[in-house]
């Protein structure tokens, strides 16, 4: 290559090249740092099931972006049951949590922790503490719970701030003694706030009732399920035809009518019209009408 004639364009070209080079280098380095931080944060931002968020907390993925880790909710809790996670704990660093077994939420009427939050990570839309959703109590160990042994306990039922609504007692037959009742605590998800008082108060060495995040605690019936008795009540009558005719595969010489109490002797006048061929192999080989 021939040497450039003047110095100025060389210097300019070099400096532009240097500038772009430097910028790319920096962008690369910052990008790598960003990748590292991003990956670390994926791990660091997972909340274990035993740590519960204060009332009004947004769904965990939103909470992690909204909370600025200031600790005001922790300070404004009159019962000092909230903590800020420290680096090294399994909880996102600096975020508030409580452990139900150590101290549950006392469900203050004025919800001071929510009022204190500057970011709406604890949603200020929560004004009735009974609408709080910190988790869901689950009687997770029926083998250990002494109510299932026929012993009277009911501590979780009695300590529950939403008494007789979030937890009710279900009387069942005591098959062991044959003459006593079991007083079984049953949690109702529409009323339970996940405050954790039941878990805190459970008299066992390890609580048999535990508060879990709802996504772990709750099952869900398929959308297509219809409960016949509810449908019947809504419609004001049976929705299936009461006299669905049973025609096929009846014993010879009989017909079926439920209102007539089932199988009825019938004269063997007309042979039953059956869709199945006489040879079962034909039906397997799809020769028949089916």
């Amino acid at each position: 290559m021939s040497a450039p004639k003047s110095n100025a364009p060389v210097r300019q070209g070099l400096s532009r090249r240097q500038f772009i080079g430097e910028t790319l280098k920096t962008a690369c380095a910052v990008g790598l740092v960003g990748l590292g931080l991003g990956l670390y944060s994926r791990r660091a931002s997972s909340l274990p099931a035993w740590a519960l968020r204060p009332p009004g907390a947004l769904a965990e993925e939103d909470f992690d972006g909204a909370c600025i880790r200031c600790g005001l909710c922790v300070r404004d809790c009159p019962y000092d049951m909230l903590h800020l996670a420290r680096l090294g704990q399994d909880i996102p660093t600096g975020t508030p949590y409580f452990i139900a077994r150590e101290a549950g939420c006392e469900m203050c009427e004025d919800i001071p922790c929510v009022v204190a939050c500057p970011t709406n990570a604890l949603d200020h839309a929560l004004t009735d503490i009974r609408d709080a959703d910190m988790g869901l109590a689950v009687l997770i160990d029926q083998e250990a719970c002494i109510a299932f042994q026929g012993l009277r306990c009911e501590v979780c039922f009695n300590i529950c701030p939403v008494r007789n609504e979030a937890i009710s007692l279900n009387l069942q037959h005591n098959a062991r003694s044959g003459k006593h009742a079991l007083f079984i605590p049953v949690v109702h998800s529409e009323h339970c706030t996940g405050c954790g008082k039941c878990e805190e108060a459970c008299i066992l060495d390890q609580a048999a009732i535990k508060v879990l995040p709802r996504h772990l605690a709750q099952g869900k019936l398929g959308e297509h399920y219809r409960l016949g008795w509810e449908q019947k009540q809504q419609a004001g009558g049976a929705l299936v035809a009461p006299d669905a005719e049973h025609r096929y595969n009846l014993p010879e010489g009989m017909r079926y009518d439920h209102a007539g109490e089932g199988l009825i002797d019938a004269p063997a006048s007309a042979p039953a019209d059956t869709p199945f061929p006489a040879n079962p192999l034909d039906s397997l080989n799809r020769r028949g009408p089916l």
Partner: peptide
């Protein structure tokens, strides 16, 4: 990412929060 990633390492808040609420391992930062 929807996550306040910087707060997992920010030395400013790590130190101040550490002094007030306890450090954990934040003193390493």
């Amino acid at each position: 990412t929807g996550v306040m990633v910087w707060e997992y390492v920010n030395p400013v808040s790590m130190l101040h929060r550490g002094l007030i609420f306890g450090f954990g391992w934040a003193w390493l930062i």
